[in-house]
């Protein structure tokens, strides 16, 4: 006797399972949103840092760098760059690009003003303060 295996049962399991696990995802996301204030460093999300995030986005920095491990893997992790390098180094580095060393990877110069550089650094400072469960493993990112 062959086992009963009907398309309608399979379909019900698909729809039921999909709804069930989507609701679970929504539930966990809801809890995450409740917990985030303790972890996401929102108290340091200043106007300046918000402007910095805008600069980060409109220069497509994610096209080369990672931020908290997400992005391209062509250039260093910047989620913790504030800790690794400090504000002055970051600004000087951005201003001195591209290095023009033959054969080396090049970063474009975005001609940022001092105010924009400060905003970007504020954004990195805010990012470095996010509780990332101790990632990355060390300061090199």
């Amino acid at each position: 006797m062959s086992s009963a295996f009907t398309k309608s049962a399979a379909r019900n399991i698909f729809y039921g399972g999909a709804v069930f696990f989507f609701l679970l995802l929504v539930g966990l996301s809801f809890d995450t949103m409740q917990t985030l204030p303790k972890r996401d460093n929102r108290e340091n999300l200043s106007e300046s840092a918000i402007r910095g995030k805008h600069i980060w986005e409109t220069r497509n920095c994610i096209g080369c760098h990672t931020l908290l491990g997400e992005g391209a893997y062509f250039a260093p992790e910047l989620g913790n760059v504030y800790t690794r390098r400090g504000p002055e180094f970051i600004k000087a580095w951005i201003q001195s690009q591209p290095t023009g060393v033959p054969g080396r990877r090049q970063m474009p110069n975005f001609n940022l003003t001092d105010a924009q550089l400060n905003d970007l650094v504020e954004f990195f400072k805010y990012t470095a303060g996010i509780d990332t469960a101790k990632w990355p493993p060390n300061v090199e990112g």
């Binding site: 999909a18 989507f22 995450t32």
Partner: peptide
């Protein structure tokens, strides 16, 4: 139906594998 049911059962909460180190 069975295969895509399994894909969603594992994949929906599987979203969590992106939520390890981003402040979540």
């Amino acid at each position: 139906y069975i295969i895509i049911a399994m894909a969603l059962i594992s994949g929906l909460i599987g979203t969590g594998h992106h939520y390890y180190w981003i402040g979540t």
